[in-house]
Simulated assay, not measured.
Amino acid sequence: MLDTQKPPRKKWWTPPFDPRFPNQNQTRNCYQNFLDYQRCVKTMSRRGKNSEPCEYYFRVYNSLCPTSWVQNWNEQIKDGTFAGKI
């Protein structure tokens, strides 16, 4: 979908608590928000709408996920080898 992006230039913030991921380890939260962002962008572009509502997921996964993971996932999406269902 999108190669490398930088978070919007706004003030820094911490992702809010997500009751689906109550534990300290936020790996699943990171991955789920990455998938949600990709799905949101895909859906919005298919409908011909602005992908601004997807910014929330983008900001959350950018603050939770290591950059190297995101780069690898974006490369896998580009190559068509990403294991997640988008």
Rank of each mutant, 00 (worst) to 15 (best):
M1K: 01
M1C: 04
L2Q: 06
L2S: 09
D3L: 03
D3W: 01
D3A: 05
D3F: 03
T4P: 00
Q5N: 01
Q5S: 09
K6C: 09
P7R: 10
P7S: 11
P8K: 08
R9H: 08
R9E: 12
K10L: 13
K10C: 10
K11R: 12
W13P: 00
W13H: 11
T14W: 12
P15K: 09
F17R: 07
D18G: 00
D18F: 02
D18T: 03
D18N: 14
P19V: 04
R20I: 00
P22H: 03
P22A: 03
P22W: 07
N23L: 13
N25T: 02
T27S: 09
R28K: 04
R28T: 01
R28D: 14
N29P: 00
C30S: 04
Y31R: 04
Y31G: 00
Y31E: 14
Q32L: 00
N33V: 02
F34S: 08
F34K: 00
D36V: 00
Y37D: 05
R39V: 00
R39W: 04
C40G: 06
V41Q: 07
V41L: 10
K42G: 06
T43V: 11
M44W: 06
S45Y: 11
S45L: 15
R46N: 15
R46Y: 14
R47I: 07
R47C: 09
G48D: 13
G48A: 11
K49L: 15
N50T: 13
N50E: 12
S51C: 05
E52K: 14
E52G: 03
Y57V: 02
F58Y: 15
R59I: 10
R59F: 02
V60M: 05
V60K: 09
N62A: 06
N62K: 13
L64V: 14
P66K: 05
P66Q: 09
S68A: 11
S68H: 08
W69R: 07
N72F: 01
W73H: 05
N74R: 15
K78Q: 13
D79A: 12
G80A: 04
F82M: 01
F82T: 00
F82K: 00
F82D: 01
G84L: 04
G84N: 01
G84A: 12
K85R: 10
K85D: 14
I86F: 14
